[in-house]
Amino acid sequence: MDRATILVVDDESGVREALCAAFESQNWQALEASDRASMWEALETQQVDLVTLDLMLGNEDGLSLAQALRERWNIPILMISGKAAVEDRIRGLEFGADDYIVKPFHIKEVVLRVKKTLDLYNREISEQSNILLDHAMFEVQRGVLTHLDGTPVELTGLEQRLLALFVQHPGRILTRDEISQALHGRDWSPDDRTIDGHVARLRRKIESPTTGEKLIRSVRGVGYVFTGQVRIARDLAEPADRKRDDDRQ
């Protein structure tokens, strides 16, 4: 990615100044917004790569603001809030946040989380990749999913394409329109529940019954995001291959 542009949305000038200074020290461009109107203006006039959004933005509801942002732009959102309860964190993620940080925060932590989120959104996985999921291997090109013990997982052709779509965009929220276009070549209709059905069936097949980890998370009113760890199998094999080569020398 070229120089990233981060939009800092917060009604406290001190917080905006601190975050902007930290982001600019990373050679990112930092923009400021203190309310909904200035946020929309920045998004409509600038190429923004990530938004940090204060949950309590004056009289604004940060949750509905995050959801509205998601409906118009596919931009990662890092939500910042003074609410530390687990329920508040979950609601923030459900309404479209990619990450959730509690005030008071450490600047270095915010910078690291921004870096991680940007990396996830810009990570490219080719159709030739073999992907290691939580407890299975997925061959993207062939559409073959196999448990690590060698047991095959039967996927329909549509489920193969859906899983490939998710693992090629890990950490990125995919709207129902994007999913419908990828699977059916048409826009999604609010009356159409087939996308939700496809995702539900795929979840049952790919999520581990032992760990209970959710690999696909729903984002209310928007779509779905693949939150599982995506590792390219060939990259993991390289150290072992090099070790075997060293042993032979």
Score class of each variant (00 low, 15 high):
R204N: 12
V111W: 06
T117K: 04
P190E: 10
R176G: 00
K103Q: 11
D177S: 08
E87V: 15
R89A: 13
D11Q: 02
P209R: 02
R248K: 12
E159A: 14
D98N: 15
L163Q: 10
P190F: 10
D196A: 14
Y100L: 05
A66V: 13
E213M: 06
V114L: 01
L53E: 03
F105W: 08
R172V: 13
A182E: 15
L55R: 10
A200M: 09
L112F: 07
G150Q: 05
A85Y: 06
Q67W: 05
S81R: 04
R186P: 02
D2G: 08
R91K: 15
G92I: 03
S129A: 15
M79K: 04
P209D: 03
R16Y: 09
V225M: 06
L55D: 01
E127P: 02
K116Y: 03
G185E: 07
A233S: 07
V110N: 02
A97Y: 01
S189F: 06
G58E: 11
E60H: 12
S64C: 01
Y121F: 12
L118H: 06
H135P: 03
L236R: 07
D10M: 03
K103L: 09
R248Y: 13
R220P: 00
W73R: 14
R201N: 13
A22T: 09
N122L: 03
D35C: 12
S13E: 15
V8H: 02
E17W: 06
I195T: 11
S13V: 14
D245F: 08
L155Y: 08
D196V: 01
K103D: 10
E213G: 00
D98K: 05
A4V: 05
L158W: 06
L120M: 06
R16Q: 14
V140P: 04
R36Q: 07
R36K: 06
E12V: 15
P170C: 08
D134W: 01
L7T: 05
K108R: 10
A30T: 07
R123M: 15
Q249W: 12
A237L: 15
A164H: 04
V167C: 03
G14I: 04
D54M: 08
A85N: 13
E109L: 12
D196K: 04
E94H: 12
V199I: 10
G157T: 03
K103I: 10
F23W: 03
G221N: 04
T156P: 09
S38A: 07
D99R: 03
L120R: 12
T210R: 14
Y121D: 02
H169C: 03
V199P: 01
K205M: 11
F226L: 06
L63V: 07
E178T: 09
D177C: 01
V219F: 02
E44Q: 15
M1Y: 02
T156N: 08
N74C: 11
V167A: 05
K108D: 14
A4K: 11
L132Q: 08
I101T: 04
I131C: 10
D187C: 02
T227F: 00
Q29S: 13
C20Y: 00
Q141M: 07
Q229P: 00
I216P: 00
E41P: 00
K83C: 08
P104E: 11
A37C: 00
M1I: 08
A66G: 13
D98H: 13
L148Q: 07
L183E: 09
D177P: 00
D187I: 01
D98T: 03
D246W: 12
R244V: 13
I131F: 11
